[in-house]
Amino acid sequence: MTQAIRVEGVEKRYGALHALKGVSFGIEQGEYFGLLGPNGAGKSTLINITAGLVRASGGHVSVMGHDVVGAFRPARQSLGVVPQEIVYDPFFSVRDILRIQAGYFGCGREAWPWIEELLERLDLTDKCEASIRQLSGGMKRRVLIAQALVHRPPVVILDEPTAGVDVELRRTLWEFTRELHAAGHTIVLTTHYLEEAEALCERIAIMDHGELKALEKTGDFLARHPFRFLRLSIDGPGTVPPAIERLVCARDNDELELRLTRGQDSVADVLDGLRDAGFRVTDVHTREPSLEDIFVELTGDSDE
């Protein structure tokens, strides 16, 4: 089956800055795909190349088998993009904005019932006559989502749709993208919230400094990184022995967090070692790695 999105050797240079250094991967139809990475990794650049907003310096991108440059009409017809920035045309009401956007894609009155449905689903019906200028940030974000869907694209990309959005709206948006996915749309989500990707995405790509660092099923990701965390509350006068000290990844007064590799470091050894060094362990807590931990490991740094 044709891939929903195919990225082949895509490069982008902004002057001296090498924003994308030859990225290749494919997203299958019907997938819920996560594109993760720290700020400046090149996620938006890749999305904008896919949408036709930015020209690649090398390589190719296709949407549903249509090259985004050579066959821009079917490629764009197949794609809906929710941009990262909140942008809008201040001259028009919400409903007019959606009708105009549908018109750009060649949809006329026959699309109006669908637009009303989108307004309803995104809880914008009350505001549909209002000028978009008067809407709150969260509502403007929902208008952006509706705008991306007016032409019923099979592939939908959301570029950090939940950045700066309150918890309740985040939840609503998750639910909405899940429904789109259930209805057969391919969804690509970029986000900073790893728990979001963990909860929603079937596969995840991690980018950093313009390169693809990892691409796996979300579950495999978590399984393939064979470490877990041990959090201990200790008291006592001793010094932590070097063999244990090297496992410590965070420390806060009497609390230690250790990163244990499965089959190599055992909880029992750690507890014995600490007791021998004169500590009393007052509390023990273990935690499986989250995407965030893997992310930090892969990109070598936390997201600033």
Partner: peptide, 12 residues
């Protein structure tokens, strides 16, 4: 304003 993107997304 940035809303030129909506035109650039379109198959025009």
């Amino acid at each position: 304003m940035g809303n030129l993107v909506f035109l650039l997304f379109a198959p025009l």
